[in-house]
């Protein structure tokens, strides 16, 4: 069986070819194919597919191509890497959070009520710088207290720089949040 030779259909092609190629085209190329080859070829293809087990596999299952990352990294490795990355991010977040809390306490204290602050200061009085509290008392707080209090109480301690806890309540009551933040 020879190949089909439709002859030169296109005039344009004729213009593109030298005469000897036009003649050779009309003559054919001498290539032949065995009779019944194509039908047998189909069966041969199926025999090979059967032998390789391809016929038993699902055919039109949608195959999602893995991305570049997934193509090179196995699932277990990817999970381990993801866990490690999550830990590193958590550690970084924690460290930054601690640093920002230390640096930006004023922001955090905006959620505290005056009562909370007062209770905290009273409970942890020993941690406060007495000198600082005393100076605050003298310069900023004592004066208004003196003005509003006709009979100022006598100092309860021999050391005038020390503040009695009872006085501290009043002082703290009158202190604004901002002032407390500055102290703390």
């Amino acid at each position: 069986m020879t190949q089909p030779h439709p002859g030169m259909k296109s005039d344009k092609l004729k213009e593109e070819l030298p005469q000897f190629l036009q003649d050779l085209k009309a003559k054919g190329d001498g290539l032949q194919v065995p009779e019944g080859y194509f039908e047998e070829m189909e069966d041969a293809v199926f025999a090979r597919l059967r032998a390789s087990g391809d016929l038993d596999r699902p055919k039109m299952q949608v195959v999602k191509r893995p991305g570049l990352f997934a193509a090179y990294i196995r699932p277990r490795t990817a999970m381990a890497l993801a866990a490690a990355l999550a830990l590193v991010l958590a550690a970084v977040w924690f460290v930054r959070q601690s640093a920002s809390v230390a640096q930006e306490t004023p922001l955090a204290s905006t959620e505290l009520t005056e009562e909370d602050i007062e209770a905290y200061v009273l409970d942890n009085l020993h941690e406060f710088d007495a000198e600082q509290l005393a100076s605050l008392t003298k310069e900023e707080i004592m004066e208004p207290i003196e003005e509003t209090t006709p009979n100022p109480p006598k100092p309860k301690n021999s050391n005038p720089e020390e503040i009695h806890p009872d006085d501290l309540d009043e002082i703290l009551d009158e202190m604004t949040d901002e002032e407390l933040e500055q102290i703390l």
């Binding site: 190949q3 190329d29 290539l31 032949q32 194919v33 065995p34 080859y37 070829m41 041969a44 293809v45 090979r48 597919l49 390789s52 391809d54 055919k59 039109m60 299952q61 949608v62 195959v63």
Partner: peptide, 27 residues
């Protein structure tokens, strides 16, 4: 056949082509 010229070669290549098509038709 016009690429490889010889029938036996063309037969091998054609069968391989269809096997690849069978395996990759989902794509």
């Amino acid at each position: 056949r016009r690429m490889v010229q010889v029938h036996d070669d063309a037969d091998d290549v054609l069968q391989n082509t269809f096997i690849k098509v069978y395996r990759g038709i989902a794509q």
